[in-house]
């Protein structure tokens, strides 16, 4: 393309701006509102389905979290009980050893 002077560029810009403003307005197509409303109804029911899918997901996650928490509490409780039982056993065993005379004592 040709190199234009500043005043020529301004003139060209002005012509293009005027051409832009003179564009005729497009004619509205028939039935736009009906088409939009149909898609809105469709979109709303899709989003309803999406919401219920999200709700199911949340329910699954909540149930899994609660189950995991119950398992954790039970595990801690079981470990505690087992430890205390083995502790008692160990204590009893220690008492046995202490009460029994050692070889050198005899």
């Amino acid at each position: 393309m040709t190199e234009y002077r500043d005043d020529e560029l301004q003139k060209l810009e002005r012509a293009l701006t005027e051409a832009y403003r003179r564009q005729p307005d497009p004619v509205p197509g028939a039935g736009l509102a009906q088409q939009v409303m149909r898609d809105i109804r469709q979109g709303a029911s899709d989003s309803g389905r999406w919401i219920s899918a999200v709700a199911v997901d949340q329910l699954v996650w909540r149930t899994a979290t609660m189950a995991a928490a119950v398992v954790l509490v039970l595990s801690v409780f079981t470990v505690g009980v087992v430890r205390s039982m083995t502790g008692e056993r160990a204590g009893l065993l220690a008492e046995e050893f202490e009460s029994a005379p050692l070889l050198g004592d005899e």
């Binding site: 012509a15 293009l16 005027e18 051409a19 832009y20 003179r22 564009q23």
Partner: peptide, 10 residues
């Protein structure tokens, strides 16, 4: 500026 070329150049 009313000619179709104007719109196409823009």
């Amino acid at each position: 500026v009313s000619r179709w070329e104007a719109k196409e150049v823009l």
